[in-house]
Simulated assay, not measured.
Amino acid sequence: MLWNVDLTLVDVAIVTRDAYADAFRQVTGRPLVKLAPAMGRPDSEIIFETLAVNGIVTGDEHLPKFIEALAAAFASRRKRLVKEGHAMPGAKDALQAVARLDGVVQSVLTGTIKSNAVLKLDMFGLDRYVDFEVGGYGEEVYPKASLLQVAQGRVKRRYGFRCDGSNTVLIGDSARDVQAARIAGAAMIAVASGRSTPAELHEAGADIVLQDLTNASEVVAAVARLTSPVDRKAV
């Protein structure tokens, strides 16, 4: 079970933008004029586009420096997350309810870099339901569909059972999340809590579209409907 983070489980957009501006200034010595839109994309892609649209000629050295600066800038603002952000309605109850399902491993498939994803969930008490070691993150330069498959491989290595389209569900809020699931052969529960409308999520190919996460029983039923029981002995 893979969860998108931003606008699916939490909304900390104000703090994220401020951290990006701080990181941009640290790396380039210039103020940030324009931040590339997220649109469900990984931080690595946003960073490269942000540098380009602000007239910075990018090289291989920029990405690791920017990621390091972004992690530090975000961590320094951790107290603002709860004040200026919030967990999405129903997120904690949904995570808790899915965690009760037999054989379920929950992690994240997110465009956010790992340290920031951990911090976002930790500050709202959502981290206890997630195994971050088998997730996929924004510093990994893969398309999101490929990153989903990377996460499946991590589950197999850590837990010893096959992880494929029959037992992998992605929950996210964007059409890009839906497209990633479709390409990777995973099931998709779309939540219309972000910037994609229910119609757009249906059109992108989501198996199930929920308005939000406020009905935990509805989330659990959707997961059960889209998955087969896992044989932990299978390899």
Rank of each mutant, 00 (worst) to 15 (best):
M1D: 03
M1I: 13
L2D: 02
W3L: 04
V5D: 07
L7K: 03
D11Y: 03
A13E: 14
I14F: 08
T16N: 11
D18W: 08
A21E: 10
A21V: 10
A23C: 04
R25P: 05
Q26Y: 05
R30W: 10
P31I: 03
L32T: 09
V33H: 09
V33K: 14
K34L: 13
A38M: 11
M39S: 13
M39I: 12
P42R: 04
D43I: 03
D43R: 03
S44N: 13
I47P: 04
E49F: 04
T50C: 00
T50D: 02
L51K: 03
A52L: 10
N54A: 09
I56R: 07
V57W: 07
V57S: 13
T58Y: 08
G59E: 12
K65C: 10
I67F: 13
E68C: 10
A69V: 05
A71G: 13
A73K: 03
R78L: 00
R78V: 04
R80W: 10
K83N: 11
K83S: 10
E84S: 12
G85E: 02
M88D: 04
G90W: 05
K92W: 05
Q96R: 15
A97R: 02
V98F: 01
L101K: 15
G103Y: 08
V104N: 04
S107E: 05
V108R: 00
T110S: 12
T112F: 02
S115I: 03
S115Q: 14
N116E: 07
V118C: 10
K120R: 11
M123G: 02
D127Q: 12
R128M: 12
R128Q: 14
R128I: 10
D131I: 15
F132K: 07
F132R: 06
V134Q: 08
G136D: 03
Y137K: 02
Y137F: 13
E139A: 11
E139T: 13
E139F: 09
S146A: 15
S146Y: 12
Q149N: 14
Q149G: 08
V150H: 04
R158M: 15
Y159F: 12
F161S: 11
F161Q: 00
F161L: 10
N167Q: 07
G172M: 02
D173G: 08
S174V: 06
A175N: 06
R176I: 13
A181T: 04
A184V: 05
A190C: 12
V191C: 06
S193F: 06
G194H: 03
R195A: 15
R195P: 07
T197P: 00
A199Q: 12
G205Q: 01
G205V: 07
V209G: 05
L210F: 06
L210D: 02
D212N: 10
N215Y: 04
A216G: 09
A216W: 03
V220S: 08
V223P: 01
V223Y: 00
A224M: 14
R225V: 13
R225A: 15
L226S: 07
T227R: 07
S228M: 14
P229V: 07
V230K: 07
R232N: 11
A234K: 12
V235G: 11
V235F: 13
